[in-house]
Design a binder for these strands. Structure first.
Lengths: 246, 246
DNA sequence: CCAAAAGTGTTATGGCTACACCCATGT
DNA sequence: ACATGGGTGTAGCCATAACACTTTTGG
């Protein structure tokens, strides 16, 4: 499969020279893309130089903020219709990447100009997205050297306030999962209650009564029961469930 | 008292010619300032031409988004330490005021240029603020001809998506008041439980059991009881309460 | 048969609902 | 005295907590 870059329509030089005409300047979107595997929450990060950053992008003048978020998310994950939710605005007064970019351009022998629009101060709109780890195929950008899924409890050295953004998402997820049924976005289409139960325990970082959890979920009426899952492990076979669509 | 304008440091011409250097372009802050009087929720609006708009402003390059919000709020209300809370991002793809400004400039015989930075597309960060109606002294801007407190159920003709922003705030307030104790920001420092009770009923648009409400509030432990209020109305005198500060 | 895993049931408790009752004060 | 308005009490109900019990399946 060919690798797609996020700036499909322009080369890197054009991006720096003409980007300010195409995108809204001083404004960006950052995504906390969260997956779940091996009973752990993972966050998708990209490597830039010796640090890690959140996937993100800029808003085209011709698209709404939501359109931009969806587009960037699709470009980065390969998913058709990913879940996402607004997290917070990060608008610190010295929020700029000048030094990081300068270093990066130097190391990679790229032409650098102090007045590139990307060196200006940025306000970022942070969103979080809950994705099925298995069906997500991360895509790196022009400048990134790698992607990685990091445990939310073991984050690497990150650029600027990006670690703070991830931790905000982690806390927000805890709050949201108590009020809304959104956690299923982290699982495949069909899942069992024990899986959902374990997921909630991981998100909240505490034990939840099995019995109560199951009854509460079923009482919500938003899951439909499917045939039992067949495995070769010992013990009773759990039912599969799926979110009712309507 | 002399009237203060929001752009204390520059004249109108400079604002249009040089504003883009001082402020972050394509980004604004809009405020839904909500007060409570006569058992009704009121929203502070400013008149611009024949329409009404939300008070708002732009973010200085030297200040954080929160600083800007607080500054604008203080300038507009005269309050020292007003409450405010992030509401939502409004980022529609055609969100610009060009025609409105053109008309307004024409009517007022002001020089108008198509390429003023304020004619560009804007993403706005909407905040809502709950203020004590009595101690708020609204201040109009350079271009506004009047201010007004409008009943949330009887909003006037408003510019662009500003009415949608107000209605979003109204709904958000309903949600928030069920989870958090923030409604007291709408009252004076000392208030009675019947007053707080009526306020909640107004916000939620439904009747709430008097008994239950009182017990719930007192059980929260966040209010301290003061001497009874003296009035000349018939009936028992209610206690005054104040939010405990710790 | 036993251990493991999933599903269901039972009792206690705490908060919420709805209403009744009691207290204080002006006319 | 009584109307008005504020404060508190109580019985029923429902969701949750804690834990016990039963069912299914592999070894």
């Amino acid at each position: 499969m060919t690798q797609i870059t996020i700036f499909v329509f322009m080369n890197l030089n054009d991006f720096y020279e003409k980007g300010a005409q195409l995108f809204l300047p001083n404004l960006s979107v950052d995504l906390v893309i969260i997956g779940y595997t091996d009973s752990k929450l993972k966050c998708l990060l990209l490597q830039l130089g010796d640090k890690w950053i959140l996937p993100g992008g800029y808003i085209l003048r011709t698209e709404s903020v939501d359109d931009a978020t969806l587009r960037i998310l699709q470009e980065r994950t390969g998913l058709d219709d990913p879940h996402f939710k607004f997290l917070s605005v990060f608008g610190g007064k010295d929020r700029k990447f000048t030094e990081e970019w300068r270093q990066f351009f130097k190391i990679n022998n790229l032409p650098f100009k102090e007045d590139y629009w990307t060196n200006d101060r940025f306000v970022t709109l942070a969103y979080y997205s809950l994705v099925d780890f298995e069906s997500t195929t991360p895509v790196i950008g022009n400048l990134d050297t790698a992607f990685g899924w990091f445990d939310l409890d073991q984050l690497p050295n990150m650029m600027m306030d990006h670690k703070e953004i991830v931790l905000t998402a982690k806390e927000r997820l805890k709050e949201d999962v108590r009020h809304e049924y959104l956690s299923y976005n982290l699982l495949a289409e069909d899942f069992t209650m024990p899986q959902l139960h374990q997921l909630h325990q991981t998100i909240l970082g505490e034990e939840l009564d099995r019995s109560r959890f199951q009854k509460k979920m079923l009482a919500s009426g938003m899951f439909e029961r499917l045939p039992k899952l067949q495995t070769d492990s010992p013990g009773r076979k759990p039912y599969l469930y799926r979110v009712k669509k309507d």
